[in-house]
Amino acid sequence: MQVPAYVEYERATSVEHALALLARFGPRAQVLAGGHSLIPMMKLRLVQPETLVDVGHLTELRYLTVTGSVLRIGALTRHAELLAAPEAGRHFPILHDAERVIADPIVRQWGTVGGSLCQADPSEDLSAAFAALNATMVITGPDGTRAVPARQFHTGPYETVVAQGELLTEIQVPITPGAGSAYEKVGRRVGDWPVGAAGAAIRLDGDVIAAAGIGLAAVGAEHFAAPEAERSLIGAQAGEQALARAGQIAAEHARPVTDQRGPADYKRHLASELTVRALRRAVARARAAGRSAREG
């Protein structure tokens, strides 16, 4: 049986307490949320923290609310809760598209949105979804909170701007009326990590694309985003031609690597193919949202 090395365990009872514990135990302490990334790595002894600071029970970070025109997601919100939340699905179908294909029901029941983002696996679906939505990450530390754009949150594989002693506490997503979004993923099996995945968020002005966000997972896109492809869409007619061009540009900027999930050329192809498919559905949803806004 795989068993972790010896580790001390502290259970935080509040954000404040968690920050105090992290300060007390220093650099060999690590935050434990749902544990679905961290515990397997500890069992394989890829990481050996001295102390775990368990924030998994902090209900104060477990919420999903709309404040004004912002969806606020507490970092300790479970995947399953995000999937079940109607307000998330209504404003951001991309989040429900993505959550439906992340892991399996057990992992979704335990794994947290914040843990997913902090793990910063290059294949993490939510990182791509929030990049497409241009979300903002709220980080809390001993000196208070700071907000970081999703596209500046990840600094490399398994690395984020969350410093030692800090916590990711909230994800904020701006709500844009009449927008549409979608997520497309290819895995080798249900519950598998993506071989490649793409998310898109679109706002239309008539039939012209007014705003576009594209997020990519597992294909080596810097910051999980495709800014060049997005730029190519602004002001374009929301038709096949523009979408295909965006897909092509997204693929050109991707830097996928060959592994057992697939060779690099296939992943590059997926960057294009899935970007187009996500855009297509996002545009259709934006049109539908526009129609119902006009009719409603």
Partner: peptide, 19 residues
């Protein structure tokens, strides 16, 4: 796998036993 099928369509089959 999806990759193997796509590569077969491209006429460049994958060696599934070697990554």
């Amino acid at each position: 796998t999806p990759a193997a099928v796509w590569r077969a369509i491209q006429g460049r089959p994958l060696r599934p036993d070697l990554a």
